Each structure stands twice: as structure tokens, then as C-alpha cells.
Simulated assay, not measured.
Amino acid sequence: PENFNVAAHFLDGADGDRTALIGGDGRRTSYARLRGLANRVGHALRALGVRPQDRVLIAMSDGVEFVAAWYGAQKIGAVTAEVYSFLHAKEYRYYERYVAPRVVVADAGTLERLRAAGVRNLLVAGVPADALRAGEHHFDSLVAGQPDELDPAPTHRDAPAIWKFTTGSTGAPKACVLPARSPRLSFDWYARGVLDLRPDDVVLPVPKLFFGYSRDLAALFPFGVGAAGIIFPERSTVERVFDLIAAHRPTV
């Protein structure tokens, strides 16, 4: 087909009763709950002025809100870009100027450094509403009032959908722009063709979700078969990873 919406393909078709995400604390999020949250986030982003092909920058710790923000943006035809949650203010300033996002989705861990970078039009999770300033929007309040259902934007398969950043080893990081069809091809060729993911798999990626390969392994490839991904907000230390392996027995 000419049109392909990443969220509609990977999130909407899953069995709602199955587990989509397993938190580091063991909390499980079903596909139905994640789908509803992503749809509400999509409506909230639209309310903040995000339109198809606008860019949404995600600067959050790994968690359900991160995944919902990513899928919510994809659902409305926006272009997603993600950055590490432990960057300095000057680095956030670079990314904000480079990406020129319509909205930046942030949380308690990144808010102060984004403020120091002069970033505005923030959708902020994990911070009380009365602690926010002008140009900062309370995630829970704005999202909670939105509908649970959201029709996917008719995104063309060749339209830009994802910005993945290079490491910056040859200078400042640059964005590799991926079309909407790219995640589907990666799933078909790698997740199924190489990993052979099955519905009973549990996937633990070691890097954080801002790293595209990790996000795909936790919250894209498993979703294509109704499997589950493990997400955790802390840095990926050897000790933390082995604790997660012992607790959740990942298969991949």
C-alpha cells in the first residue's frame, strides 16, 4: 500500500490483553493500556499544534510515557527524534536548534537542563503542574482529558517518520532520516528473519530507548508479534542488567 502508519501497524493490531512492556520494577503494561495512552498523547500533541511532518523531540527517561509519546507522535503523522536523558544543557540546545521541533516531550530528569538550554513548548511528565512555567505543559493533565481512540494519519510509506542520530564521532551528531516503511522492513528482515521473534518472547535491550536499535528491540519488534519488551529508567550498569535478567528471564 502507498500509506503506512507505524503506530497503526505495530500497536493497533496487537491483542490488548497481552503484556507489551515490563518495567524495571516488574509493573506490566498491556497493549490495550499502552494503545489508549498513546492515542491520548497523540491528541494532546495535536492540541499543542503538532501537524503531520512536524518534528517531536523526546528527551525522557525510559518508561511507558516515553513509548506512548513516540507512538502518539507516529499516530498523527509527526516525525520522532529522541535524545539521551543525561545530556548537558549545551547539548540539548544543539539538538533543539537542529531538530526545530514543534514540541519537546520531557520529564523531571531532563526539565532543568532543557530550561537552561532555553527550550520552550515542553510537554512535561512527572512534574507537578504548579511547578511548571510559561511554555511548559503538564503531561498528565493535558493527556488525561483526551479521547482514547485516534484514527491514524494516512502517512505515505516514503514520508519521513523517524530521525535517528549518529554518534557524533566525526563532529556534531547528524540525523539519519528514515521513511515510514523502514520499521516494517527492519521488522520483516531482522526481527523475524534473523531473531525469529515469537509471541512468548521477552526482549531486554541494554542501551537506552533514545538509541534507535534499543527502542526497536524493546518497543517495536516485539510489538509486531505480540511479545513484550523490558524498559527501565536507570543507567545500564552491569549490575542492573543482571538484576533484570534474574527477575524477568528475557529470551532475547
Score class of each variant (00 low, 15 high):
residue 153 A to D: 13
residue 250 P to Q: 12
residue 114 L to P: 03
residue 86 F to K: 14
residue 232 F to Y: 15
residue 20 A to H: 01
residue 149 E to L: 03
residue 44 A to D: 09
residue 56 V to C: 07
residue 72 G to I: 08
residue 122 L to Q: 11
residue 1 P to L: 01
residue 35 R to L: 08
residue 42 G to L: 06
residue 232 F to V: 04
residue 252 V to K: 09
residue 240 R to T: 14
residue 95 Y to N: 07
residue 217 L to W: 04
residue 95 Y to E: 05
residue 120 R to M: 02
residue 165 F to D: 02
residue 177 V to C: 02
residue 213 Y to S: 10
residue 143 V to F: 01
residue 239 E to R: 15
residue 46 R to N: 03
residue 132 L to S: 05
residue 5 N to I: 08
residue 182 S to L: 06
residue 166 T to C: 05
residue 102 R to I: 00
residue 7 A to W: 02
residue 54 D to W: 05
residue 13 G to E: 14
residue 51 R to A: 15
residue 201 D to E: 14
residue 135 G to Q: 05
residue 184 R to E: 13
residue 145 G to K: 12
residue 108 A to P: 00
residue 238 V to E: 04
residue 96 E to S: 14
residue 209 L to A: 06
residue 56 V to R: 09
residue 173 P to Y: 07
residue 99 V to S: 10
residue 163 W to T: 00
residue 169 S to N: 12
residue 108 A to R: 15
residue 101 P to L: 09
residue 152 P to A: 12
residue 144 A to M: 03
residue 210 F to R: 00
residue 168 G to K: 08
residue 100 A to Q: 13
residue 136 E to I: 12
residue 249 R to C: 01
residue 32 A to H: 06
residue 208 K to D: 11
residue 211 F to C: 05
residue 158 D to W: 03
residue 43 H to T: 11
residue 107 D to K: 11
residue 196 D to F: 01
residue 55 R to S: 07
residue 43 H to A: 14
residue 218 A to S: 10
residue 205 P to D: 09
residue 160 P to S: 05
residue 37 L to C: 07
residue 193 G to N: 12
residue 212 G to A: 09
residue 105 V to E: 08
residue 108 A to C: 04
residue 13 G to L: 11
residue 94 Y to Q: 03
residue 42 G to P: 02
residue 234 E to C: 00
residue 193 G to F: 06
residue 3 N to F: 04
residue 185 L to M: 08
residue 168 G to E: 10
residue 3 N to T: 15
residue 205 P to N: 12
residue 107 D to F: 03
residue 86 F to D: 14
residue 202 V to C: 10
residue 156 H to E: 11
residue 193 G to V: 09
residue 210 F to A: 12
residue 63 G to T: 09
residue 9 H to K: 08
residue 23 G to K: 12
residue 246 A to K: 12
residue 180 A to C: 06
residue 231 I to T: 13
residue 61 S to C: 06
residue 138 H to G: 09
residue 107 D to W: 02
residue 129 A to T: 03
residue 167 T to W: 02
residue 203 V to K: 03
residue 209 L to N: 08
residue 68 A to Q: 07
residue 217 L to K: 06
residue 25 D to R: 07
residue 171 G to K: 02
residue 27 R to S: 13
residue 30 S to V: 07
residue 28 R to Q: 15
residue 158 D to A: 14
residue 252 V to I: 07
residue 1 P to Q: 01
residue 107 D to C: 10
residue 76 I to T: 06
residue 187 F to H: 15
residue 247 A to K: 14
residue 43 H to R: 10
